[in-house]
């Protein structure tokens, strides 16, 4: 029986919902995006879906489940729909390593890249110590990824293929690239972090990533937001 389309509550420019779309694309799962504005996420109707009032959330008519938090959604999707291990592993220890890198993306990349963007780009008053704190953390995280890719020695974070762990970083690294360019900190990054750069390039060649990055960039451009 063909799969019914998953409903995904997303946003034209936010990295976390688009991150889930990349995994949906990779797994060939049909989905509909319900685009929500940030002004709507704290309304009761949406709080019934996600008590935290944030994006993304999904409802899967194939199983009847409603879930929120991009990390929990991605784990659900691969658990339910990636039996062929196209972007995941069931073997030990790879299964746990992919979960570990996803947790690092959720707790270590997303929040800090988000704070860096806020202080460097949106907050009207420039607070150099806050900008430095978060931009340095962005670069530190890039260094951790670069080193891990070197250590694993396959071009990927886990095992010898591209997994949801790698893909989960892509939407925020796109934002980071735009931000670091604005701050004149992008120059030299390629030579300082060559494996990270190669890793991103390889991911950006994938159809799923190409398609979603384009949609996210278009959404941001249409609303006057930098990449």
């Amino acid at each position: 029986m063909p799969l019914k389309a998953i409903d995904l509550w997303g946003h034209w420019g936010a990295p976390n919902p688009w991150k889930v779309c990349i995994v949906l694309e990779e797994l060939g799962i049909p989905y509909n995006i319900q685009s929500v504005e940030f002004s709507e996420v704290k309304q009761e109707a949406f709080l019934m879906i996600n008590p935290n009032g944030r994006l993304p959330a999904i409802k899967d008519p194939n199983t009847g489940i409603t879930l929120w938090e991009s990390g929990a959604i991605i784990q659900y999707l691969v658990d339910q729909y990636d039996r062929d291990e196209r972007v995941s592993y069931n073997s030990f220890p790879e299964k746990y390593f992919t979960q570990q890198w996803l947790a690092f993306q959720i707790s270590g990349q997303g929040p800090y890249f988000g704070q860096a963007t806020w202080f460097a780009r949106f907050h009207p008053e420039k607070i150099p110590s806050a900008i430095d704190r978060y931009v340095n953390e962005v670069i530190r995280v890039i260094g951790v990824l670069d080193k891990a890719i070197e250590t694993n020695n396959t071009g990927w974070l886990v095992g010898d293929k591209c997994t949801y762990a790698d893909l989960s970083f892509v939407t925020w690294t796109s934002v980071a690239e735009g931000l670091l360019r604005e701050l004149n900190k992008l120059d030299g990054l390629e030579t300082r972090y060559p494996r990270y750069t190669e890793w991103l390039t390889k991911m950006e060649e994938r159809e799923s990533v190409k398609k979603i990055r384009e949609r996210m960039a278009r959404g941001r451009a249409e609303h006057g937001l930098p990449p």
């Binding site: 935290n52 929120w68 938090e69 990390g71 929990a72 784990q75 959720i106 707790s107 997303g110 929040p111």
Partner: peptide, 11 residues
């Protein structure tokens, strides 16, 4: 359960 767990570690 993992919606809540990720909400703690990421939020």
């Amino acid at each position: 359960l993992f919606s809540w767990l990720f909400f703690q570690i990421g939020g």
